[in-house]
């Protein structure tokens, strides 16, 4: 009962401005605005309660992953679940790095090699094609661009069936992990849109100065499109980090396994039992998740841009 009173007081402080009104009118307006303010406060309380509950649901798996990774196996594996580790067990993380079956160091290395090389090559290919589509004139340009966009409709699995056979002779190499995914029609589209926003006058001015196309691309277009290029870089690196299906099909040897595949297929059983050592497994999951969260914190703007752009096509 105490809460609705507060806003009512603040309303009656504001209402003297309506002093010229008759008593009757004054009262009814006062009552309406009182009700409105009270309603507003309740609505705000409702909104914050709803958002807080949903936020807790969204955050809970992260929280559970973190605290589980710091519990001892006995504490985790007991009827009384604790919401904070009784004794923080950093050695779960040591156990992750010592897990020969997981071989986390190698997984990090493989994933970084594939991520960096495929990002660089993909950027070069994307910039060149986006430039051709945005600035150059050639016969069949619009048809070709339309055809490329149309391939985005087709589910990747349809390509995978054949690609799996195409790469049969080069399985378990970095090439097989990098090359099939170098061209992304979506990135070409994204960058082309960005290039088209750069005024043509700049290009003509550069031409008058005798600048070559490549130099213009390098000195003017790329710096101006830098935010889009950063977005592509981040999405591509995250792609290597998160990819599972293709690497799981074509590269399963130690030297080429990517991190997500390695994490999913590693054994975390306690020797000689059927018990999964969840604390150690959760520590491994934390180690795979943290880099993604760090990238998100530092490059939030660029990631959101890429995602929302993909949301509003055309």
């Amino acid at each position: 009962m105490a809460e609705p009173k507060k806003p009512a007081e603040s309303v009656s402080q504001e209402t003297p401005a309506a002093g010229s009104l008759t008593n009757m009118k004054y009262k009814s307006i006062d009552r309406v605005s009182k009700m409105q303010t009270v309603g507003k406060v309740f609505a705000q309380i409702g909104l914050y309660t709803f958002l807080t509950v949903m936020a807790v649901v969204v955050l809970f798996p992260f929280y559970w992953m973190l605290i589980s990774s710091l519990k001892s196996f006995n504490e985790y594996n007991s009827m009384k679940q604790t919401f904070w580790p009784r004794q923080i067990q950093w050695n779960n993380y040591a156990a992750v790095f010592a897990n020969k079956d997981l071989n986390l160091g190698r997984l990090f290395l493989n994933t970084c090699i594939v991520g960096i090389v495929s990002t660089i090559l993909s950027l070069i290919i994307t910039v060149l094609s986006a430039y051709a589509f945005a600035r150059m004139e050639f016969r069949g340009k619009n048809f070709l661009f339309g055809a490329l966009l149309a391939t985005m409709m087709i589910p990747g699995e349809l390509f995978t069936v054949t690609n799996f056979l195409t790469v049969a002779s080069i399985r378990n190499t970095y090439t097989v992990l990098i090359v099939p995914f170098l061209v992304s029609v979506f990135y070409i589209y994204l960058l082309r849109q960005n290039f088209m926003q750069i005024p043509n006058e700049l290009y003509l001015a550069a031409k008058v100065d005798g600048t070559s196309d490549l130099k213009y691309l390098w000195k003017v277009m790329i710096p101006l499109a830098a935010p889009t290029l950063i977005t592509i870089t981040i999405l591509k690196m995250m792609g290597a980090w998160n990819s599972y299906v293709w690497p799981n099909l074509v590269a399963r040897d130690t030297m080429h396994t990517l991190i997500t595949v390695g994490l999913r297929n590693a054994q975390f059983q306690i020797a000689g039992t059927q018990f999964v050592n969840y604390p150690v497994q959760m520590a491994a999951v934390v180690l795979v998740t943290i880099p993604l969260l760090l990238v998100f914190i530092f490059f939030r703007k660029y990631i959101m841009r890429g995602v929302s752009r993909s949301g509003i096509k055309g």
């Binding site: 936020a55 998160n242 599972y244 939030r300």
Partner: peptide, 17 residues
């Protein structure tokens, strides 16, 4: 920010959670 977090995580890893 909180509501966007699941987007940047790894579907396999959080599935394990």
């Amino acid at each position: 920010t909180i509501f966007f977090l699941p987007y940047v995580t790894n579907a396999i890893a959080i599935g394990m959670v």
